[in-house]
Simulated assay, not measured.
Amino acid sequence: MPDNRVALVTGGSGGIGRAVAERLAADGMAVGVHYAGNKGRADETVAAIGKAGGQAIAVGGDVAEEAEMASAFEAVEVAFGGIDVVVNTAGVMVLGRVAEFSLDDLDRMHRVNIRGTFVVAQQAARRIRDGGAIVNFSTSVTRLAFPEYAGYAASKGAVEAMTMVLAREMRGRDVTVNTVAPGPTATPLFLDGKDQAVIDHLAAQPPLERLGAPEDIAETVALLAGPGRWVNGQVLFANGGIA
Rank of each mutant, 00 (worst) to 15 (best):
V87Q: 03
G91T: 09
M93G: 14
M93N: 15
G96Q: 10
V98L: 15
A99P: 07
A99E: 15
E100P: 10
F101C: 04
F101N: 01
F101G: 05
S102H: 12
D105Q: 14
R108T: 15
M109F: 12
R111L: 08
N113A: 02
I114M: 12
I114G: 10
G116H: 09
F118K: 13
V119G: 04
V120W: 07
Q123T: 13
A124F: 06
R126H: 11
I128P: 00
R129N: 14
D130G: 07
D130F: 08
N136V: 11
N136R: 14
S138Q: 04
T139P: 13
S140R: 08
R143H: 15
P147F: 14
Y152K: 13
G157T: 06
A158F: 01
V159Y: 03
E160C: 09
M164L: 09
V165E: 11
V165C: 10
V165A: 12
L166I: 11
A167H: 09
A167I: 10
M170H: 01
D174M: 10
D174Q: 12
V177N: 00
V180S: 01
P184V: 11
T185F: 04
T187I: 03
L189P: 08
F190P: 02
K194A: 06
K194I: 07
K194C: 04
A197S: 14
V198M: 08
V198A: 11
H201I: 07
H201R: 11
H201V: 07
L202D: 01
A203N: 04
A203I: 01
P206Q: 02
P207W: 07
R210C: 12
A218H: 08
E219K: 14
T220R: 08
V221P: 01
